[in-house]
Computed example of a mutant assay.
Amino acid sequence: MPSEIQTLGSLLRTWRERVDPREVGLAGGGRRRTKGLRREELAGLAGVSADYVVRLEQGRFRTPSAQVVSALARALRLSDSETELLFRAANHLPPGQTTIDARVSPAARRLVARMPDHPLAVFTADWTLLHANRLLCDLFDLPPLAEAIGENLVVRTFVHEVSAQIATPAGGDEMFERALVADLRLSATELGEDPTFQDLVTTVRAKSPRFAAYWDEGRAAPHMSMVKTVHNSVVGDLVIDCDLLKFADSNVRLILCSAAPGTPDSDKLDALRARANRTDRTD
């Protein structure tokens, strides 16, 4: 039945039957009625009783502890993706990265290098700037890249109060600020114990009553694409789309900015692009 495909019991049976006993240090000889591990062998490897494994496979017990799920995943030699699936089947959040990833992944570097005609920026999960191109810095009137790296968007928005001066999001500043805090709240489910993350939230809460109020609302949601009117000091106001991309096996995110083709906003972005190219040639 289709409904049985992803149940905890069906997953355990499927993965148990594919394991070669010799790969986990068990004798592979003798007659076996079924391929793979026996239930009692899986139980021994995971440190639980054979009856417990029987009840899990038969669907009589569907919520083992996270510690038991981890032990079963190790015994079954599951990949990271399979381990995540097993956790979700057992009604647990999968184990995720518990520290802020401060590496610019090769995929992110390729996108930044191969799309120089679009404003691009790479941020950590706490919205610290890891990397950007010159066009992004010019668009948002940021300092030179070497100085901009390490700046935090949450701090710029709620402590330094500069984000609202640079761009007005569609729906107003409050909509953007709530979305930013909700995204940070979502990251806290995995990164809440990271000392850098804790320090950021504690510091901004103490300095911004507005941030504290949004944080205490408890709303958690991923930050999505957003339209902004940028108040640029060179070309004036222009409307841009800010789209967010995430990468597998990393909690960094990439922001890509663009303007609708054939519009005055696109012409203004072209002017900034030409200016950035001239500056690059003279550096």
Rank of each mutant, 00 (worst) to 15 (best):
P119H: 11
P143T: 08
G28Q: 05
L11N: 10
Q67P: 01
A220L: 03
I255C: 11
A206Y: 02
V239G: 08
D241G: 06
R32D: 09
D270W: 11
A260T: 14
S208P: 07
L26I: 14
E177S: 02
D101H: 08
T202A: 10
R114F: 03
R74W: 06
G29E: 06
S49Y: 09
A221D: 04
L256M: 11
M1I: 02
L238V: 04
A50Y: 02
T157M: 12
E57Q: 05
R273A: 07
L86Q: 03
P209I: 05
R62K: 13
S65L: 11
S258F: 07
F176L: 13
V155K: 12
D270S: 15
S70M: 12
P169I: 07
A43L: 09
Q165M: 11
V204L: 10
L254R: 00
G96W: 01
V155T: 06
L136W: 15
D183F: 00
A89D: 06
R32S: 02
R273K: 13
V53F: 08
K228C: 10
A102L: 05
V104C: 03
T202D: 09
A259L: 13
G236D: 10
Q6N: 15
R32H: 09
G44I: 04
A66K: 14
P143V: 12
V252W: 01
E4R: 10
A66I: 01
T98H: 12
D183K: 00
D237L: 07
P195C: 08
T168H: 07
A260M: 09
E147W: 12
E82C: 06
P106I: 08
G150I: 06
T128M: 01
G36T: 03
L129E: 09
R278Y: 02
A66S: 08
D194F: 13
R77Y: 03
V181R: 03
L142Y: 08
S10K: 13
K246T: 14
G36A: 05
D117Y: 15
T83H: 01
C137W: 07
P222R: 10
D237C: 12
A27D: 15
L191R: 03
Q6A: 13
V122L: 10
L200P: 07
V234N: 11
G29R: 06
R18V: 11
A90F: 12
L8D: 08
A188Y: 04
A43I: 14
S10D: 12
V227S: 04
L139R: 07
D117Q: 05
L86D: 07
S70K: 14
T128Y: 05
Y52T: 03
N277R: 12
A102T: 13
A212L: 00
V201E: 02
P21S: 06
N232Q: 08
R281I: 02
R110P: 02
D267A: 15
R39I: 00
D280V: 10
P222Q: 02
I255E: 15
T124H: 06
L272V: 11
P95E: 05
E190M: 07
L272C: 05
A220T: 02
P222E: 06
V201W: 01
T63H: 15
R31I: 08
I100G: 00
R110N: 10
S10T: 15
V54Y: 08
S3W: 04
M226L: 11
P144F: 03
